[in-house]
Design a protein around this nucleic acid. Structure first.
Length: 265
DNA sequence: AGCTGTACCTGCAGGC
DNA sequence: TGCCTGCAGGTACAGC
């Protein structure tokens, strides 16, 4: 489910509710889920919760961390009830607990030394991130030399981290750029508009607490509201808010791709 | 090197 | 009602 705004909303929730708590156990309910040795966790006190791209990292005081990726349908739920989709339960000394639920079972948890997080394959390959180190200079040079469709480039986590299908579709609409356009064909004006649009749609996503189109929930089990404000994502057949033309859907690299044929060139 | 297609899973909506 | 197909917000990997 999650892209940058959803994962960041989860991170903020975890930061609020579990930092300072001591873990007494991790119960694994799905053997596919975990890599690493859970005995490193017992007695570990949570000191920080970080996000890198769409990945989460829970740092403990003892030099170990829990790295997590919730992929399409993962959820971290604080104080929730165990369901058939619960894959792990972290219990804290104060009797509170954190569930990791995941319908499609794509997500993972890894227990590693905090110093080794950056060497995990997923974290190692991440590109710069909006609101952090994605500069216009880097963005411009990357766009100019890339020959794939601009949408594919934006979705590529090694080029830019944090964007997924929802925010990529909406950012391209806001910048009035056709998703199928070859990256290197973008003009300076397009590049600047797109750079700003990426930040704008992510900011909106964050302000609405993420998009709960299907499974996303924050750590309190609450839905986000950005799905009520999609510009084009999942809007096939609806009228474009800008010009009234009908929004079209196509497929690009296997993903649903939405755009206004009139506004986006 | 860098791209595309497919696999990984489960659930759900839509067509018949 | 039920079966079938296709699709879903992400990544890893094979193959070109």
């Amino acid at each position: 489910m999650p892209e940058l705004p959803e994962v960041e909303t989860i991170r903020r929730g975890l930061e609020k509710y579990i930092v300072g708590k001591r873990i007494i156990s991790l119960k694994i309910l799905d053997n596919k889920l975990l890599q690493g040795h859970q005995f490193h966790l017992a007695g570990g006190k949570v000191v920080a919760v970080k996000r890198f791209g769409k990945g989460l990292v829970i740092d403990l005081h003892n030099g170990y961390s829990i790295a997590a990726h919730i992929k399409m349908t993962g959820q971290f739920i604080y104080q929730g009830n165990i369901t058939k989709h619960s894959r792990a339960v972290i219990e804290f000394e104060d009797n509170n607990k954190l569930l990791f639920n995941d319908i499609r079972r794509f997500g993972w948890l890894k227990i590693v030394k905090t110093s080794g997080i950056k060497n995990l394959p997923f974290f190692k390959q991440l590109g710069p991130e909006p609101f952090r180190n994605l500069t216009l200079i880097y963005f411009r040079s990357m766009v100019k030399k890339n020959k794939s469709p601009i949408k594919s480039l934006l979705m590529n986590q090694t080029k830019i981290s944090g964007l997924g299908n929802i925010y990529t579709n909406d950012a391209l609409n806001l910048a009035k750029i056709n998703p199928l356009r070859k990256s290197s064909s973008l003009k300076e004006t397009d590049i600047k508009l797109l750079y700003r649009a990426i930040h704008e749609v992510l900011k909106r996503g964050l302000e609405f607490g993420g998009a709960s189109q299907t499974n996303y929930l924050n750590v309190l089990g609450q839905k986000g509201q950005y799905q009520q404000h999609f510009l084009v994502y999942d809007c096939e057949g609806e009228k474009c808010y800008n010009c009234g033309n009908i929004i079209k859907k196509t497929r690009l690299a296997g993903r649903g791709t939405f755009f206004c044929p009139n506004c986006q060139h």
